[in-house]
Computed example of a mutant assay.
Amino acid sequence: MSSTSVNIVLRAYDQFCPLILGAIDTPGFDFDVRFRAPLSNEFPEGIHGGEVSFNRYVMARANGDDRLVGLPAFVLRGFRHRNYIVRRDSPLESLSELKGKRVGSNSWSDTGTMWARAALREAGVEVGDVQWVIGHLDDKIRMKPKTPFDVEPPHGSTFLAGDQTLMDDLRAGTVDAATTAFMPPSVYEVGGEFRRLVRDFRAAESGYHRRTGVYPAFHIMAVQRSFAETNPRAVLALYDALIASWENWWLKLKNFGEASPWAIEEAETMIRDFSEDTPPFGLDKPAHRTMLAAMCHEQYAQGLVGTAADPARLFSDFEEIAKAAGR
């Protein structure tokens, strides 16, 4: 019996390596996972689906663009209190102290920076309370090329010239803090010139989770609508394969969690404190619905969209496919 080929883009996260390595049985479907391909919400020729920016996906839905069919598979998640950087000698210690300050960002439409601003707002600092500076982080971490899914930063934002970087301005004291998806190496250096703004970010993020019920999702999986309409069984097979890969990884983590000294403690933290967020699939758990509602609200509150997306409709196409298949 021949198999249907499905070409997807997905980074080689630990929990999806079983799928990438061919350790997941997918009868009737042959998944070619391009884990080295760049991520984009616009799939190139020959790519049926892949990992996409959740923020850009939801903004597109809010604006009536339904070219992609999203799967409720939250393949990348995290908190963003940890992603604010200051100079080591900075007197700043908390997000609430950023009101009125100059804060740099090397992306405005990324999901991570959207959630970073959500954390800021939850700390009492509105987007308009900050003087935003937009530019390259440093010589290696550059701004991404603008896509049709992106929006402009707020009116009055400062844009750095091509040869300037946020880290240089942070070093010079002309920027008070910066937020970015990836930490520059100096943040990890003992006694380096930069540090995280929130020193005990685990405590801050745990408190945020307790207060809001939100464990932010950054990326989801999506497929082209044309592919979903002609291959609905492949969409469900992809979803099932992602779940099976996660479960394979989860079992091995609990049995062989030795990648770091306390990896097994992190697994137990997920079981104890994030039971409604684990596994990161589906819409039946209240925690996932809370996160979706928060995302739609934040996009509107931050001025990313003129009308908020309906959280109940973000994955309605996938739900219809599942219902038609008796799922």
Rank of each mutant, 00 (worst) to 15 (best):
D89N: 15
A116E: 06
G64W: 08
G100S: 05
F79W: 12
V125E: 00
R67M: 04
T111A: 15
N63G: 13
T113Q: 12
H81F: 13
P91H: 11
N106V: 01
N106W: 00
G124W: 10
V125T: 05
R87L: 07
G124C: 11
W115H: 02
D66R: 13
R67Q: 11
Y84E: 03
S96W: 03
K101H: 10
R117Y: 09
A119C: 15
F79A: 02
K101E: 05
L98Q: 01
F79S: 03
E97C: 12
G70D: 01
G64P: 04
D110H: 11
G100D: 05
G124K: 13
P91L: 11
L120K: 04
N106I: 01
G70C: 01
V103K: 01
E97K: 14
A118M: 06
L98G: 01
E126A: 15
L76F: 13
S96E: 14
A116H: 05
P91V: 03
L68F: 07
V75K: 02
R77M: 10
S90E: 12
W115Q: 00
K101G: 06
E122V: 06
V125R: 00
R121E: 12
E122Y: 14
R77E: 08
T113E: 07
D66K: 09
L76P: 00
H81W: 11
D110L: 10
S96D: 13
R117L: 14
G78K: 02
S96L: 02
M114Q: 09
E93Q: 14
P91Q: 13
R121T: 11
M114G: 00
V69T: 09
R102H: 12
D65F: 00
T113N: 14
P72Q: 03
E126L: 11
F79C: 06
E122P: 07
L95C: 10
R87S: 14
E97R: 12
F74H: 08
L68S: 04
G100C: 02
L92I: 07
R80A: 14
E122I: 03
R117T: 04
